[in-house]
């Protein structure tokens, strides 16, 4: 029966992880409606996750759009459908690529940073110090971060959409010689506002998931500096997985 043990442990771990997330989520939601609401901490997190994350997110978006245009052009040229490169780039950016890639980049950048920061607070007793100062650590640490995630990731996605489409446009028009007017026309002809909104809804959910997981992993850190490292890795891995898995279900629900 020995082989069953690791399987069982895995299942228990998974259950515990979800249980922890749900518990902490409950505490966060309660913390959200309890005073004091820390506007300054939220602003700090918005700057850290959003403003400071702009370069990496926007670079990703530009090059994703550019590569997408390049690849679809090569494929579409084979059956004389080059005109539709713009549509494909815009549709895939808005509905799928911008939310998911932005989510992944923010996970790598900010989810991990949150896990590391909260994790080292845990191992240096700073979280205990918060409790001793009659401050709910979940409210104090989670609420501004998760709120920032929900607000900022859709904002980043809006910019990623614009930059991705621009990247595709530059490649198609400047590099591949597509007609600029036709390209722009085709880019927007088949787009629906729903494509934009659904991408932003996704982004909000991703922002929520990646910050919740980042905070949870940091909060539940044990075992000193090594534990902080583990928490950081786990925040990125679990955050990315959560984004990709939830993406599938969101796509099913939203379209």
């Amino acid at each position: 029966m020995g082989f069953l043990e690791p399987v069982g442990r895995l299942a228990l771990d998974a259950l515990e992880f979800h249980g922890r997330c749900v518990t902490l989520l409950g505490l966060t939601v309660r913390g959200l409606f309890r005073k004091p609401f820390d506007g300054r901490a939220l602003a700090t997190q918005v700057v850290r996750v959003g403003f400071d994350g702009l370069p990496v997110v926007l670079l990703t978006a530009v090059f994703t759009g550019a590569v997408l245009a390049l690849q679809t052009y090569v494929g579409f040229k084979r059956f004389h459908a080059e005109a539709w490169v713009g549509s494909v780039v815009a549709l895939s950016m808005l509905r799928e690529l911008a939310p998911v890639l932005t989510g992944l980049m923010v996970t790598g950048r900010s989810g991990s940073a949150m896990a590391a920061e909260i994790g080292s607070m845990r191992v240096t007793e700073q979280i205990d110090a918060l409790v001793s100062l009659a401050t709910d650590p979940v409210q104090y640490l989670f609420v501004p971060r998760i709120l920032a995630g929900i607000i900022v990731v859709p904002m980043l996605v809006v910019l990623a959409n614009a930059l991705g489409i621009t990247g595709g446009y530059l490649v198609a028009v400047r590099l591949l010689g597509a007609n600029p007017v036709v390209y722009v026309q085709n880019t927007f002809q088949f787009l629906d506002l729903n494509d934009l909104w659904s991408g932003l809804v996704k982004a909000g959910v991703f922002g929520f998931l990646l910050t919740l997981i980042g905070c949870q992993q940091g909060f539940d850190t044990t075992g000193g500096a090594e534990g902080v490292g583990r928490a950081t890795t786990a925040a990125v891995v679990l955050g990315s997985l959560a984004i990709l898995v939830s993406d599938f279900f969101l796509t099913k629900v939203l379209f």
Binding site: P36, E117, T124, E125, Q126, D128, A129, S132, L133, T135
Partner: peptide, 29 residues
């Protein structure tokens, strides 16, 4: 808890804040 003051082994200061902010933290909250 507010009637207690606790000092931790290594101080457990919030390293995202300055010394002054650390001490001001319970006062502000």
């Amino acid at each position: 808890r507010r009637r207690f003051g606790m000092s931790f082994q290594e101080g457990a200061l919030f390293d995202s804040m300055s010394v002054g902010e650390n001490i001001a933290f319970p006062l502000k909250r």
